[in-house]
C-alpha cells in the first residue's frame, strides 16, 4: 500500500518537472505555432549552466537564475537570428529547431562529455521528511511546491498583466493583434525567451534528481511532446493535466511493465488523439 503511495508521489513530482518544462513549450507552440524541437536541448543546456554556477557559487538559487537567464539569451538569439528568417513557414521553423537541437546537443557533449552529472542541492533540501507513515525525499516535495508556484505565477502573468493579455490575444488571433497596432514581434520574442527560460529552470531542477546526461534532452522532449499533445496547444490547464497523466503513466508503467514502459505512455496518447486530434483543451482558432 505505502509502496503505491510512494510511487504515486514519484509520479506527481515527475509530473511537476514535466509541467515546468512543457509549459514553456506550450506557450511558444500556442502563440507562435512553432514546435520548438530544441526545447529538450535548452533544458539540457540550462541544466549544465546551473551545474557550473552551483559548483562555483554553492548557491542553488543563483544556479536557477543563471540557467534561466542564459537559456533565455539562447532563446533570444534563436528567435531573432534564425527563426525570423523563416518567418511564417511553420514546417521550415520546426525543421530548423531540429537542426538547432542537434547542434546544441553535440556542443554539450563536447563541453561536458558523456558522463552523468547531478546538480548539487542545498543542505536545507537534502534528506528525507516524514509525512505520517510515509518517508519521502525533501527535494521532491520542494519540486512539487515549486511547480505549483510556477503554475500560479504563469496564470497570474497571463490573466493580470499586459503581456499576458497580449499573449492570450495572440494565441486566439495574432494577425488581429498585429492589426491593432501592437508590435506582435516583440510579444513573440518575449514569449520565446520566457518559454526558453522555463526549459532552463527545468534543466536545473531535473538535473538535481534525474541527473544530466547526453540523451536527457530527447527523453524530456518526448515527454513534453506527449504532455502538449494530450493537453492541447497553448493551454495552461491542459498542460497541468497532461503532465499529471504522463508523469503517473511513466512512473507506474516503469514499475508494472518495465519492458513496455514506452508503450504504456504513448498508447493512451495515440488513442486520445484518434478521438481528439487537437488534445483535451485544443482549439482550432
Amino acid at each position: 500500500m505505502s509502496m503505491t503511495v510512494f510511487q504515486a508521489m514519484n509520479g506527481a513530482t515527475f509530473a511537476a518537472l514535466l509541467f515546468i518544462v512543457a509549459s514553456g513549450f506550450t506557450l511558444i507552440f500556442g502563440l507562435m505555432r512553432i514546435v520548438n524541437l530544441a526545447h529538450g536541448a535548452l533544458y539540457l543546456m540550462g541544466g549544465y549552466f546551473g551545474l557550473v554556477v552551483a559548483h562555483r557559487t554553492d548557491s542553488f538559487t543563483l544556479a536557477l537564475a543563471a540557467a534561466a537567464l542564459a537559456v533565455a539569451a539562447i532563446g533570444f538569439g534563436t528567435y531573432t537570428l534564425l527563426l525570423r528568417f523563416v518567418g511564417g513557414n511553420v514546417l521550415r521553423q520546426v525543421l530548423l529547431t531540429l537542426g538547432l537541437a542537434l547542434v546544441l546537443d553535440d556542443l554539450a557533449l563536447v563541453i561536458w562529455g558523456g558522463d552523468a552529472f547531478t546538480v548539487p542541492i542545498p543542505e536545507a533540501l537534502r534528506g528525507p521528511v516524514q509525512v505520517g507513515s510515509l518517508v519521502y525525499p525533501k527535494y521532491r516535495l520542494f519540486l512539487l511546491l515549486f511547480s505549483v508556484a510556477v503554475f500560479i505565477g504563469l496564470a497570474l502573468l497571463l490573466r493580470h498583466t499586459r503581456l499576458g493579455a497580449l499573449i492570450r490575444a495572440g494565441v486566439d488571433d495574432a494577425e488581429m493583434v498585429d492589426a491593432m497596432g501592437i508590435d506582435i514581434q516583440r510579444v513573440f520574442v518575449y514569449t520565446f525567451m520566457l518559454g526558453a527560460a522555463l526549459a532552463g529552470i527545468g534543466g536545473v531542477l531535473g538535473g538535481a534528481f534525474l541527473t544530466l546526461y547526453p540523451t536527457a534532452d530527447s527523453d524530456i522532449l518526448v515527454f513534453s511532446l506527449a504532455v502538449v499533445i494530450i493537453g492541447g496547444r497553448g493551454s495552461l490547464a491542459g498542460t497541468a493535466i497532461g503532465s499529471l497523466f504522463v508523469g503517473m503513466l511513466a512512473t507506474f508503467g516503469q514499475v508494472w511493465f518495465p519492458e513496455l514502459a514506452y508503450f504504456v505512455i504513448f498508447g493512451p496518447m495515440a488513442l486520445l488523439l484518434a478521438f481528439r486530434p487537437l488534445g483535451l483543451f485544443g482549439r482550432t482558432a
Binding site: L98, G99, L102, V103, L104, D105, D106
Partner: peptide, 9 residues
C-alpha cells in the same frame, strides 16, 4: 551531428 544540425539550419 553538429555538421548535420548546421546543414539543417
Amino acid at each position: 551531428p553538429m555538421v548535420l544540425g548546421f546543414m539543417f539550419i
